[in-house]
Design a protein around this nucleic acid. Structure first.
Length: 568
RNA sequence: UGGGCGAUCGUUCAAUGGCAGGACAAUGCCCUUUGGAGGCAUUUGUCCAGGUUCGAAUCCUGGUCGCCCAGCCA
């Protein structure tokens, strides 16, 4: 069921500026005969989300197109936020998406080399130890419109800097007491160039190096050099790092090392979706969702549990491409690619979410028979199965109206409809409860219409799904809706937090659903279309005798649209 | 009010000085044993003002609007 080819068969790959740039560099042999080398550099401080999927597809996909290689590199320079749990989940998610890295790397692998290089810069008079507090450094940095001012420690001698920096490493000083800074230009219009901090003192346990280090490199000092060490030719990152490029280049130039180059592209934004790791972490910590893999989360683990497939996500990423414009992609685009994928491969089954009992008055009591049903009309090779039919059935409550509105084609008194793959039935009478609700519909069936066609050529306007009451198996069904009520979750009233736009009805749990018996054998990896209802998959919460299904997506619903329009 | 980046159908991505096109969405019709899927058709766009050119979405100038940057986060 899984496809190792990143490109789905008919996915187009429109040209984009990243591909063009790489093609150009290969053509002009910018890096000689070196292969195209990319990297996907997540910080292990949270779970990967759909936005990362775009970055993964770009980095792995493009390298692959040019016969190059991609490293998975953990950008683990901040021990206070990073955990092994995240490392493991990230590896799992990258593989699940369908990609295999060339080398598994960690920025922390380079701590020794980074330190040596820092020593080199100190000796060259290009870095200095600053005793200013964080607050003082901030004040000296100046503002967007005013230049910064030199730290009084900027003119320390090389010897003193060397001594202090080595002692920082030895652990002689407390957290925050000193930093190592690059000596560049406090008047630069680019704030990143105003003597950026290279190292800070952090007496923290690192998820990989443990207590070995008490000074840690900053992102800017670590990232480019890590790229360079790995001989990354195209270091693709998101737009907000564009301002860092001069610094990225500066370190590499001062050190005279392999000239990796950074190229920025736009971050993915989706309507009705939050894609900030920090905010996602908050949802998890405050238990607004049930963990990182809650099916409502835009994380890859959440999408996976929800029933999304790597193929669909890759096709989506291929379609949205990459550019340098900030925009927001309609989440419907993602949903489209998921429906498209599932429509082709999901096994069909019949399941009634809100059961309404139907009795076929002229069908012999105690009799049962099996009808032949296609497992997937889109794919004849999927074969057929036998589904039990009997006198008492369940149909969807919505599929019967005692007083049908205009254009309602389904069952109503006197109307004949088709029970899918079974028989034509005509509603004759109803049974109501004390409140006047319809609780049972009595029908007659036409024995000659077995299989779903009448020999006399009679047509019906509607086909409905059903399950045999005696054979049905119960299940819990979890329906999901958007996590946020607004297309832009950041569309807020004064003083409000994004979480105030959380959709209170993003999950609905149905406990009375009735499924056709074949679903008892559903596997966790299975993908199903409950006909006329939507796409579903088994949730890991399922236990023997207790099935739990997640709705991945509903089927497109023309009738709902008609009804909505009529109501509006 | 400094610097960087950007602006093409409602959304997203193409068109790389030569007929503005695809996908999503929307609308209508056809088809249908899923009101699903599929097919056909339709609607809507080059931010503004100048300039260069036989010819400009593309190049130039000036505006306008949007995003990013003042962590010892990444």
């Amino acid at each position: 069921m899984t496809d190792s080819n990143p490109e789905s068969p008919d996915a187009r790959t429109p040209s984009n500026f990243l591909r063009d740039q790489i093609a150009e560099d290969v053509r002009t042999k910018k890096y000689g005969d070196a292969v195209v080398q990319t990297r996907f550099p997540p910080e292990p401080n949270g779970y990967l989300h759909i936005g990362h999927a775009k970055a993964i597809c770009i980095n792995f996909g493009l390298a692959d197109e040019f016969g190059g290689k991609t490293n998975l590199r953990f950008d683990d320079t901040n021990p206070e936020k990073e955990e092994t749990e995240y490392v493991e989940s990230i590896k799992q998610d990258v593989r699940w998406l369908g990609f295999e890295w060339d080398r598994l790397c960690y920025a922390s692998d380079y701590f020794g080399r980074l330190y040596e290089w820092a020593l080199e810069l100190v000796k060259a008079g290009k870095a200095y130890v600053d005793d200013l507090t964080a607050d003082e450094i901030r004040r000296h940095r100046g503002t967007l419109t005013e230049p910064g001012t030199d730290s009084p420690y900027r003119t320390r001698t090389v010897e003193e800097n060397l001594d202090l920096f080595m002692r920082m490493k030895q652990g002689e000083f407390p957290d925050g007491s000193r930093v190592l800074r690059a000596k560049i230009d406090m008047a630069s219009p680019n704030l990143n160039m105003r003597d950026p901090v290279m190292y800070r003192i952090l007496h923290a346990t690192h998820h990989r190096t443990g207590g070995e280090w008490c000074i840690y490199p900053m992102y800017d000092y670590a990232h480019g050099q890590s790229d360079s060490i790995e001989r990354v030719t195209h270091s693709m990152c998101t737009l907000e790092f564009a301002d860092h490029q001069p610094l990225y280049k500066w370190y590499i130039a001062q050190l005279g090392i392999f000239p990796s180059e950074q190229i920025e592209f736009d971050r993915l934004n989706l309507t009705y979706t939050l894609l900030s790791k920090r905010k996602l972490l908050q949802l998890v910590q405050e238990k607004r969702v049930n963990g990182w893999d809650d099916p409502r989360m835009p994380t890859l683990s959440g999408l996976r549990r929800r029933g999304f497939t790597p193929e669909a996500i890759r096709a989506f990423c291929a379609q949205i491409g990459a550019s340098r414009t900030n925009g927001t992609t309609d989440v419907e685009m993602l949903e489209h690619f998921q429906r498209d994928d599932l429509n082709r491969r999901a096994s069909r089954a019949m399941a009634v979410l809100h059961p309404l009992k139907v009795v076929i008055d002229n069908y012999p009591a105690g009799q049962e028979e099996f009808v032949d049903v296609a497992n997937n009309p889109e794919d004849p090779s999927a074969g057929t199965r036998q589904v039990p039919f009997s006198r008492e059935l369940f149909i969807e409550h919505d599929d019967f109206r005692e007083v049908p509105p205009p254009k309602y084609y389904r069952l109503s008194p006197g109307k004949e409809v088709r029970l899918r793959n079974a028989y034509f039935v005509t509603a004759k009478s109803v049974v109501k409860d004390a409140e006047g609700n319809v609780v049972e519909v009595h029908c007659t069936y036409d024995p000659a219409s077995r299989g779903g066609n009448s020999p006399d050529g009679r047509k019906v306007k509607s086909t409905m799904h059903w399950v045999s009451a005696a054979h049905a198996i119960p299940a819990e069904i979890r329906l999901y809706d958007k996590l946020f009520t607004k297309a832009d979750p950041y569309d807020l009233e004064e003083g409000q937090d994004v979480l105030s736009n959380l959709n209170p009805n993003s999950i609905e749990i149905l406990t009375g659903a009735k499924l056709e018996p074949s679903l008892a054998n559903a596997k966790l990896e299975g993908r199903f279309q409950f006909e006329r209802v939507g796409y579903f998959c088994l949730d890991p919460d399922s236990a023997p005798g207790k099935l739990v299904f997640n709705r991945t997506l509903a089927l497109k619903d023309t009738w709902a649209k008609i009804e909505k329009k009529a109501g509006a």
